[in-house]
Design a binder for these strands. Structure first.
Length: 418
RNA sequence: GCGAUCGUGGUGUAACGGUUAACACUGGAGCUUGUGGAGCUCUCGAUCAGGGUUCGAUUCCCUGCGACCGCCCCA
């Protein structure tokens, strides 16, 4: 896009710029995520965006690491990868200190990830994602807690119960069926991935038959006849006790990843035109043993910022933009500039976010700019204010004006802003 | 990695292969030397890049880049 001699203003392929209005929404989403996690007793953690490429090699295929990650060689000949997901990192961290971390441990993070893929609907090369995981606990209480968090998150965004549904299944259903039908151990992961795509494939039965032969019919029959399990029903009861009533058992939910070992779930948007999984998660009890030491059971879920934003847009739940700045001091006369700067400093000590308009433009232009920036209050500062110590604070939304002394300004703003 | 569609100012649109690429919004300046949202005037600002066909290309063709959508993949 460069004009040949100019540097392009376009962001790098597949990544986004967040202008103030975009960042406002982003921050709103993140704060909701953080709030819900903390309400459930989860602690925030973080790690570097850089990881040794080896971390991903150990649990996934060469092809994925080579083709779908940003991997490069550093100056010390080390192979480095920009993290494509959080689970290996958090598993590494927990495994490293498994003896000193009090279990069960509840951890969350909201961070960015990179995947070298073709950008398309709902999928970019850089995305942000909430990861919440519960380590060292098994059973209904732990699984229910994770699902209840996912539920609270969607509710926290202002959605109603009928705006989404929580589809839950259990990997152990598949394991049992594989045992019964007799699917070879080395074929199971592939069969599971095929099942995950069942709804999207035209000739699902044919594809399955190619993998496991005549056993495919029995498998499909068994799968379709399994409508729930005792465990999932116990989970449902627990969730109802926690006020979560829109869980449905859907044995077609498998999740594509190999590492799930038990409960798996996806939260679906029920709106026409946005029918898709907004978040997903499940139990992965064997992953941490990759790092040696004792096995540590884990259950967690993730939600991406792109689907979160789409959900808010679809259901008209986006918050109206409001800047962090509460007040603009408009300087009428250059000779009052110093006075305005001093007043601004006084107000900042009282926790008022205040910008001084140093443009030197006419007062009308300064107020117009404040209005355009959606700053809610302005005070004009000129020789009158400087000499009298009285200030007229104006609410730009209502037009209302109040005249008061400097020491009352903060109080007035706090009561007006709530 | 594969395929479809698309690419004109900051944004949204217009221009049969033929004048100086038009219109609206936005931005900037002013009408207005202490009070915004309206109006009026003026103004900045674009054919993604490179090549080809043609007397002549925003328009047609090729390549690249980018966007969007789907496939693959989704650790």
């Amino acid at each position: 896009m460069a004009k040949g001699d100019k540097i392009s203003t376009e962001p790098y392929k597949g990544v986004r710029d967040f202008y103030p209005e975009d960042q406002f929404v982003q921050r709103y989403i993140f704060e909701q995520m953080e709030r819900v996690c903390e309400l459930f007793g989860y602690e925030e953690y973080n790690a570097s965006i850089l990881e040794s490429a080896e971390l991903y090699r150990s649990k996934t295929s060469e092809e994925i690491v080579n083709d779908q990650t940003y991997t490069f060689i550093d100056r010390g000949d080390r192979e480095v990868t920009l993290r494509p997901e959080m689970t290996p990192t958090v598993a590494r961290m927990v495994a490293a200190r498994s003896r000193e971390i009090p279990m069960p441990a509840r951890w969350y993070s909201v961070q960015n990830f990179f995947r070298y893929e073709r950008p398309q609907h709902g999928r970019l090369r850089e995305f942000w994602q909430l990861n919440a995981d519960l380590f060292g606990a098994i059973g209904v209480a732990a699984d229910a807690e994770i699902i209840a968090m996912a539920y609270s998150l969607v509710k926290g965004f202002g959605a109603a119960d009928h705006d989404f549904e929580i589809r839950v299944s259990d990997r152990r259903i598949l394991d049992t069926i594989y045992d019964t039908v007799g699917v070879d151990a080395d074929k199971r992961a592939e069969v599971t991935r095929l099942l995950d795509r069942r709804a999207k494939i035209d000739d699902f039965a044919g594809e399955l038959a190619k993998l496991i032969g005549t056993a495919s019919e029995t498998l499909i029959d068994q799968l379709d006849r399994t409508t729930s399990t005792a465990y999932l029903e116990a989970l449902r009861v627990e969730l109802v006790h926690m006020g979560v009533n829109n869980m449905i058992v859907d044995t077609k939910i498998t999740r594509g990843f190999d590492y799930y070992t038990g409960m798996v779930f996806e939260v679906f948007d029920t709106a026409e035109g946005n029918r898709r999984a907004m978040m997903g998660g499940g139990r992965y009890d064997n992953l941490l043993s990759l790092f040696g030491g004792e096995p540590i059971p884990a259950v967690g879920f993730a939600m991406g910022d792109v689907v979160a934003r789409d959900f808010l847009e679809t259901h008209n739940l986006l918050p109206a933009y409001a800047p962090a700045t509460e007040l603009m001091l408009c300087v009428v006369d250059e000779s009052a500039m110093t006075h305005a700067q001093r007043l601004a400093q006084d107000l900042r000590r009282e926790d008022i976010t205040v910008a001084v308009n140093i443009s030197g433009k006419r007062i009308g232009d300064q107020i117009r700019q404040a209005d355009k920036m959606k700053i809610p209050f302005v005070i004009a500062i000129g020789t009158q204010e400087r000499d009298s110590g009285k200030y007229t604070i104006k609410n730009l939304a209502s037009g209302a004006e109040t005249t008061l002394t400097a020491d009352r300004i903060a109080e007035h703003l706090f009561s007006s802003l709530g």
